[in-house]
């Protein structure tokens, strides 16, 4: 079998296996709430600043762009709606997903990879502790919970960024801008973005952990796993985004 294809199927197989083990172990005690919380804090602390910065500037750029395009149709008044809908439905979740993949996902690849090559994962198994239960389950659910929260924050900040640009820079009327922002927004828009975020969080954590878990080849191998954690997760996010958007409208 050609190398890249075999590699793809091997990765896919491991991904599905890892996902299966996460689901199988999740309901089993002991429940490690402290570890879950610790991982949530870690994801939050790692990623919040970058997510907010990105959301802010994305909102601002969106306002600039849509203003310049919409003014050609004399439709500047819809800038608020466009910025808000784009952020909430699409950009906030995808960009945050990519950022968290780069920060938290890579950290998981590196951390579990190091534990693998230094035999800490073997040591866990020896002490009758399933490493997926102990290491992967809390990381996966922590990211699945945290990413929608980050995205919700990003939504707010992005919309605020758009507001700043429109009102301060472009001289839009603050009251009508705010009105426009929420005029066409439905609960479904908000929810679809958050559901996507949860899926992205789940995917990137399973992929990050899986890459680390199957590390071979010492320090160099850990480097490879860390890179693969980000690359594979980013691709998975972009591809699943398309299908999720299709599914959730």
């Amino acid at each position: 079998m050609p190398g890249p294809l075999a590699g793809f199927f091997e990765q896919m197989g491991r991904f599905i296996q890892m996902m299966g083990r996460v689901f199988a172990w999740t309901p089993r005690p002991p429940y490690d709430w402290r570890e879950l919380f610790r991982q949530m804090v870690k994801v939050g602390v790692n990623s919040t600043p970058v997510v907010l910065l990105t959301a802010m500037f994305t909102g601002m750029v969106l306002a600039l762009q849509t203003f310049s395009v919409l003014s050609r149709f004399n439709a500047e008044s819809f800038v608020g709606s466009l910025v808000a809908l784009s952020m909430v439905r699409e950009l906030s979740s995808v960009l945050s997903g990519l950022i968290v993949a780069g920060r938290a996902g890579s950290a998981m690849g590196a951390e579990l990879g190091t534990m693998r090559v230094t035999e800490q994962i073997d040591a866990l198994e020896v002490m009758a502790t399933d490493p997926v239960h102990y290491l992967v389950v809390p990381r996966v659910w922590a990211t699945t919970i945290m990413l929608p929260l980050l995205v919700a924050l990003g939504n707010g900040v992005g919309i605020f960024g758009g507001y700043l640009v429109s009102v301060v820079l472009m001289g839009a009327n603050p009251v009508s801008y705010v009105n426009r922002t929420f005029q066409f927004m439905q609960l479904n828009d908000l929810l679809s973005g958050l559901v996507k975020a949860a899926v992205f969080g789940f995917l990137l954590a399973v992929i990050g952990c899986q890459q680390g878990f199957y590390t071979t080849g010492g320090a160099e191998g850990v480097g490879r796993s860390t890179t693969a954690a980000v690359v594979v997760a980013s691709i998975a996010i972009l591809i699943s985004d398309f299908f999720l958007t299709r599914l959730l409208f």
Binding site: T114, M115, T118, E119, Q120, D122, A123
Partner: peptide, 9 residues
């Protein structure tokens, strides 16, 4: 006891 210790770092 592992050869390299395998302590949880």
């Amino acid at each position: 006891a592992f050869q390299e210790g395998a302590l949880f770092d």
